[in-house]
Amino acid sequence: MKTVLALVATLALPGLAVAQDFGAPARSLAFDLGLGAELGPSYPGSGTDRVTPWIIIGGTGSGTAGMGNVDQQGLGISPSVGTKGKRDFTDGDELIGLDGIDGAVELGLRLSYGLGPVTGYGSVRRGFGGHEGVTGNFGAKYRINVSDRVTLWTVAEAVYGNAEFNDTYFGVTAPESRASGLPPYEAGSGINEAALTLQARYALSENVSLLGEVRYGRLVGDAADSPVVQDETQSSVRLGVTRRFSFGF
């Protein structure tokens, strides 16, 4: 765990928001940290939900479209951090006979371009732990400033994975097929989900905010055709609180 945290810190430092007033020597370094809860599918393709922790790093929501206090204008590069929960037979009788999958941490980079209230973005992450594949997402978001305290974002995005990632969560090997009764299945690389999201931020104070998110996802491609999938609809709700840390130098 200490190694993972060190990797996250190493990736995060170059992507923290840095602002400079060229009329003065002062600079500032700012980033968000927070924690919340997510109600969503027990595993990719599950037909049942469970509550899991929502870790919020740098205002990015663990790899989702960013919800920073001010969306960066122009080109931006920042860390992208994601997580995948474990999967085993305790998550549903339909998984009996399938190999268990450990929880995974995903580390990578996010590239964005902001123009007024619109931001386009794309990310790529490599998994460590339960999967060692490559995944990420790309899409666009639109910011609506409701008031000084309330900001909304509408987001449309697609999620993709390479063959190793998709086959880990949606494939069925020959031994698993014999043990579970499911047909053998191999999932190839490509887009596995399309989603629409509504995000909201309510500023409790200058540095503390409540975050909320309602997401509607739909599995597509090889993922949707997988015999492991119980429900192609993958919706979730998140609620959390963040604290902005700023340092001048």
Rank of each mutant, 00 (worst) to 15 (best):
M1H: 12
V4D: 13
V4E: 13
L5W: 06
L5N: 03
A6Y: 11
L7N: 14
A9Y: 14
L11N: 10
L11P: 08
L13A: 14
A19M: 05
P25A: 08
L33H: 14
G36L: 03
A37N: 04
G40L: 03
S42V: 07
P44S: 01
P44H: 03
R50F: 00
T52G: 03
P53F: 03
G61Q: 12
S62H: 03
G63T: 06
A65Q: 09
M67W: 08
M67Y: 11
N69T: 04
Q72F: 03
Q73G: 10
Q73W: 08
G74M: 13
L75Y: 14
L75N: 06
I77F: 15
P79V: 07
V81M: 12
T83I: 02
G85S: 04
K86R: 12
R87Y: 03
F89M: 04
T90A: 02
T90C: 00
D91T: 02
G92D: 13
E94N: 12
G100K: 14
D102A: 09
V105L: 12
L107R: 13
L107N: 12
G108W: 14
L109F: 15
S112C: 00
G116P: 00
P117L: 10
P117M: 03
P117E: 08
V118R: 04
V118K: 06
Y121S: 13
G122M: 12
G122R: 11
S123I: 11
R126Q: 15
R126H: 15
G127Y: 09
F128D: 11
H131N: 12
H131G: 09
G133N: 03
V134G: 03
F138R: 06
A140C: 12
A140D: 07
A140R: 09
Y142H: 09
R143N: 08
I144Y: 01
V146D: 02
S147T: 13
S147F: 08
D148V: 01
V150R: 13
V150W: 15
W153L: 05
V155R: 12
V159A: 13
G161C: 07
F165Y: 15
N166I: 01
N166H: 02
N166C: 02
D167L: 02
P175K: 09
E176H: 00
R178I: 05
A179D: 07
G181S: 12
L182G: 10
P183C: 00
P183A: 05
E186R: 10
I191Q: 03
N192Q: 08
L196Q: 07
L198N: 06
A200H: 11
S209I: 02
S209F: 07
L210K: 05
L211H: 14
G212Y: 00
G212H: 01
V214T: 11
R215Y: 01
Y216L: 07
Y216H: 14
G217C: 00
R218Q: 05
D222P: 13
D225R: 14
D225W: 10
D225N: 13
P227W: 01
V228T: 09
V229W: 01
E232P: 01
Q234T: 08
G240R: 10
V241E: 06
F247C: 00
F247E: 04
G248L: 03
